[in-house]
């Protein structure tokens, strides 16, 4: 283990401890709920990156969040299924759907894949709007039950939800990190760099891409389901094209090249908009120019900023 790696793991440990102690240091419902949403989007953005490294850019990940959210919310509303189980079922539903769709669409590359995923996001939203007898269309699902442990209801208290989302995020990140560092990850990177060559070396293009797609979508489903039980409300607009674009912004703004890029991106972009206290409708006014500026001047994303600084100071 070299020095760089040791610093990295130390930093990680510090951040995880801060994450766990945060509610003790500052028990403020507003900050907690902000962090909680950031955690949800971090999972989605890291999943977006996992697909991206295989050479496929997707603008449809929110569709899988929607599948998780609707599955789990409908099961708990109509059949009284426990939300804890719902988290898993939501994830599995999204994963199975991703498996099926992935086998078909991941064969198509480049711009075509982008358009297909864009369609996917829009289709999923229209589908929830259309299936009125079950999803209540534009009115959305209300009174989605929250989590409880034995007789302890999570209720409106933010702290249990905060810990739950933190744990979900850490598990998802751990799985995706290990995946990228394993043999599978090497195969995924190889596909992204040159998929024809990779296939000649015995890496099955479609199968590995489907694996990445399914893993990312499974976690998207889980966080989608968590989100539904957390805000007790599910609406088609939460899972259209816009949230998918947001996931992409978080991923790319932070730096798509490294694993921790999307994490930094989510914190900085979401934190910045919160800090500037902009109304929701006007937030794109910041995101738009931010994306353009990052693409023009920081092709490595925000995470490349210190690196650039150090390099120039060494010269």
């Amino acid at each position: 283990m070299n020095k760089n790696n040791r610093i990295k793991s130390l930093l990680l440990l510090v951040f995880t401890i801060i994450g766990f102690l945060f509610p003790v240091i500052r028990n403020d419902p507003y900050t907690l709920s902000l962090l909680l949403i950031i955690f949800v989007f971090i999972v989605a953005a890291v999943g977006f990156r996992l697909i991206y490294i295989t050479g496929r850019l997707t603008i449809g990940q929110a569709a899988f969040m929607g599948v998780g959210a609707y599955t789990s919310a409908l099961l708990s509303l109509n059949f009284g299924i426990n939300p804890w189980l719902g988290l898993l079922i939501g994830g599995i539903a999204a994963g199975i759907l991703a498996l099926g769709i992935g086998y078909i669409v991941l064969r198509v590359g480049g711009v075509y894949f982008v358009i297909i995923t864009l369609c996917l996001a829009e289709i999923s939203k229209l589908f929830w709007l259309w299936w009125r007898p079950v999803t209540y269309g534009n009115s959305g699902l209300i009174d989605v039950p929250g989590f409880s442990i034995a007789s302890f209801q999570f209720g409106i208290n933010k702290i249990p939800y905060y810990y739950l989302s933190l744990i979900i995020m850490l598990v998802a990140l751990f799985v995706m990190y290990r995946m990228e560092r394993s043999r599978i990850g090497i195969a995924l990177h190889a596909l992204g760099q040159n998929d024809v060559l990779a296939e000649h070396l015995g890496i099955n293009r479609t199968r590995y891409r489907v694996l990445a797609f399914t893993t990312a979508s499974f976690f998207c489903g889980v966080v989608g389901s968590f989100y539904a039980h957390y805000i007790h409300f599910v609406h088609p607009d939460q899972f259209g094209v816009m949230p998918s674009i947001m996931i992409q912004i978080y991923g790319i703004a932070g730096g798509i090249g490294v694993f921790f890029g999307p994490i930094v991106g989510s914190f900085v972009v979401a934190g910045l908009t919160e800090f500037l206290k902009i109304a929701k409708e006007f937030q794109p006014l910041i995101y738009g120019p931010l994306l353009v500026i990052i693409m023009l001047f920081l092709p490595k994303g925000l995470i490349g900023l210190p690196q650039m600084f150090f390099k120039s100071s060494k010269k």
Binding site: P284, L285, I294
Partner: peptide, 20 residues
């Protein structure tokens, strides 16, 4: 492909919200 798509999404968001 990727940067150009991202830039055009950025422009899209910016133009929409500036009209709003």
């Amino acid at each position: 492909m990727v940067p150009s798509l991202v830039v055009s999404i950025g422009l899209m968001l910016f133009l929409q919200s500036s009209i709003l």
